[in-house]
Design a binder for these strands. Structure first.
Lengths: 243, 243
DNA sequence: ATATATCAACCTGTATGACAGATTTAACAA
DNA sequence: TTGTTAAATCTGTCATACAGGTTGATATAT
């Protein structure tokens, strides 16, 4: 089992086992291979296997019985909240969520361009300034970043957009994972580039240019997707297959 | 830390930590004690602590950063199921939801055009046929209609899209609300028109034409929005208050 | 005085070996 | 054939060691 950049082996194994279960390789009630067998299958230590299984157990996917084995649980009725089996440190989870976010926020930007009120314009400008200020002072920008995106959703004057964004929450772009491959100067370039993208979005909204707003937001979030995907590609280029 | 009968020490520690976080002992962003400290606090081995933290991490409560520590995540808004203050008799509520759906499903159609597998093509064609069959036999088309949209979401091969649609799904458009103002012949025209729109979507997806798929889905759902808005106008013309 | 580099201390991630307790399977006796 | 016991196999926990990453203090350069 090959290591994926920015991701622990526990997460890699956890996700692989989760996928095997969801793909039906192990039906509900079936017994997983023993820990000893899994250490060989995945070529990792027993510690990694145990921690991965602890994670699956916490999510209710498996049940471990001492002496007997680890068994796949009958899935609980999924009447609850969606997006609850996400591990925000998994790159693939982030890319998936980002694709969904891109769909929603692209349209939100266009609706905001059509519908925002003068008061909402003011909130947008203040939120943009707050991100910039955080960036310049070297403070974490995640909160200010999310507040700007939420202000755009609010400017649609359709509460469902803000409701969706609130549901997903601000844990969507861990900043470190995106900046991790660079020297500090590149990270600064990255922050400046993000800020330029934010400015283009807000500018198009203020101009009531719905198509430009849609395109600017798409560019911004496709850029984030691209940066995440490059993490995966970097790992592949280093000769590590991503099975 | 005392062992509880029938429960592993991992589970005991995991629950204790979860409770501490939820009780506010550690605020979002705060750092938990180190693993070494927690082994002392709970009088268990580091293995138990690590497995407990792996469980909390899988549930999104904490994030571990190598060398820095384990940090409490900002909770995703856990106010329960979103979209709960909707009154489905209110046309404006349906329009709001439809706008959000339009954002997501427009992008889903484009991704499905890029990514669908031959097996998923087969599912799409079958789902399209099922809607047509239901329409011809005068049966309700709502279920078949939803199944088609879900098949498209599945063909994105990003589970978040299907997850979103499943969440929204029970709130799908009640057909009666759209048909209620018409004679039977008009209702038939309406159904035929919807079917043509469905065919255009599936056709673009099978053709791998992402832009056409996006446009066909947008047209389809914008059409639904338009039809809902005309209900608003009709009601206003008849002097009926809409609250 | 300020900025930068270095290093030690501390942290999480992983591997390994050992032992405890529970379950399952195989062997043996009645 | 059935019941009992032992052996094998399994998960749960502990301890130790090393690797790699982060942080803060200290030394050095400007």
């Amino acid at each position: 089992m090959q290591k994926i950049a920015g991701q622990t082996m526990v997460q890699t194994v956890q996700e692989a086992l989760r996928r095997q279960i969801q793909d039906g390789q192990y039906e509900p009630g079936a017994r997983l291979p023993s820990e000893a067998q899994l250490t060989q299958d995945f070529d990792v230590s027993r510690t990694v296997i145990r921690e991965a299984i602890a994670a699956l157990r916490a999510d209710g996917l498996v049940e471990a019985r001492q002496g007997a084995g680890v068994f796949v649980q009958v899935p609980a009725e999924t009447t609850g909240l969606p997006f609850q089996n996400l591990d925000f440190q998994l790159i693939s989870s982030m890319v998936e969520l980002l694709e969904l976010r891109t769909a929603v926020e692209t349209e939100a930007a266009a609706l905001a361009a059509q519908r925002r009120s003068p008061a909402q314009e003011e909130v947008l400008i203040a939120a943009l300034g707050a991100v910039q200020q955080a960036a310049e002072s070297g403070a974490p920008t995640m909160e200010a970043d999310f507040a700007l995106h939420l202000a755009i959703a609010n400017a649609t004057n359709n509460p469902r957009f803000a409701e969706f964004l609130t549901m997903i929450g601000p844990n969507v772009i861990p900043r470190r994972a995106l900046a991790d491959s660079s020297a500090e100067s590149v990270s600064q370039d990255y922050i400046l580039g993000i800020q330029a993208e934010h400015e283009a979005i807000v500018s198009a909204i203020l101009d009531r240019d719905e198509d430009a707003a849609r395109e600017a937001m798409r560019t911004h979030l496709k850029g984030s997707q691209k940066r995440y995907r490059s993490l995966l590609r970097d790992a592949a280029r280093k000769g590590m297959p991503l099975s």
